[in-house]
Design a binder for these strands. Structure first.
Lengths: 118, 118
DNA sequence: TAGCGTGTTAGCATTTACGCTTACATTATA
DNA sequence: TATAATGTAAGCGTAAATGCTAACACGCTA
C-alpha cells in the first residue's frame, strides 16, 4: 500500500469527490490528483494533518497515513522523528537493537514490556 | 555541542588545517569553514562518512557526529532513519513509549533488556 | 445535444539546499 | 619585507521540492 492509494481509498469511503476533498483540505485539485496517482510526494505535515481531520481518521489510521507519507519521501513520520531526536537513550536503544539484529518477535516482546511499564 | 564545534575540535585534535581537511574530504575550504562556523547545515551523508574516515573516528564518535549533523537539519541520522523505516514494530514501540511518556530511566532498562536479548 | 462535474495533463513560480569559485584579511615565515 | 599559508566573506549555479493555474478529455444528465 502506498500513500496515494491509501488516501484515495479513504476519500472514496467517505464518498467525497477529489475536487471537494482538495477544496476542504485547501489545496489545488490538480495537486491532489498528482498525489493520489503518486506522481508527487506526499505533501507537508500541515496538509497531512488537514487530511486526517477532513477524513476523520482514527489515531491508528492517522499513524498509518503519516508512515505512508514519510515512506514516499525517504523519511520517517514527524512524531517519530521528534521523539527520536529528543531522546538520546532512544537512539542508543535503537542502535543496540540494530547491532544485535533484533527480530520482529523480540520487538514484540519489547512492546509488551513497554506496555507493562506504566 | 553542535556539529560545527564538534568537527572543528576533532580536526584540531588531529592537528590538521581546515584547508588540508577540506582537501582530504573532497570539499571546498570555504564550504568547510561555513560548516564549522555553523553558517551552513551539516553536509550530505557521503561527505559525513568521508569526514569520519579522515578523522578516524570510533563508532561512538561517528554516531555522535551523525546525530549532531542530523540535529543541524531537523532530521535524524540515516542509520536510525533506515532502521525505523524498515521495522513496523519499532514504530509501534516508539509510539507506545511516547504515549506512555516513558522517561530516561525506563529507556535505560529497555536498553539493558535489549542487551540481554541476544 | 449542450453543459456541467470529474479527474488529469502540462507547465510555471518560488523556495530551499548543496557545493563551488573568487577574492580578501590576517598571521606566520623566508 | 615580501611571500606563503590560513581562515573567511560574498556571491553564483544547479537541482529538487512544493504548490499553483490553465486547459483538456470524458462521462453524465437536463
Amino acid at each position: 500500500m502506498i500513500f496515494g492509494e491509501f488516501i484515495k481509498e479513504k476519500r472514496q469511503e467517505k464518498g467525497i469527490t477529489l475536487r471537494a476533498f482538495a477544496d476542504k483540505v485547501g489545496i489545488a485539485p490538480a495537486y491532489m490528483s498528482d498525489i493520489e496517482k503518486a506522481k508527487r510526494n506526499a505533501p507537508t505535515q500541515e496538509i497531512l494533518e488537514k487530511m486526517v481531520s477532513v477524513l476523520e481518521l482514527s489515531q491508528q489510521e492517522a499513524n498509518e497515513l503519516f508512515d505512508l507519507a514519510a515512506s514516499s519521501k525517504d523519511a520517517i513520520a514527524q512524531d517519530l522523528k521528534e521523539y527520536v531526536s529528543d531522546n538520546q537513550n532512544v537512539r542508543v536503544a535503537l542502535r543496540k537493537a540494530k547491532d544485535l539484529n533484533l527480530g520482529d518477535d523480540e520487538w514484540i516482546k519489547i512492546i509488551e514490556e513497554i506496555m507493562n511499564k506504566k
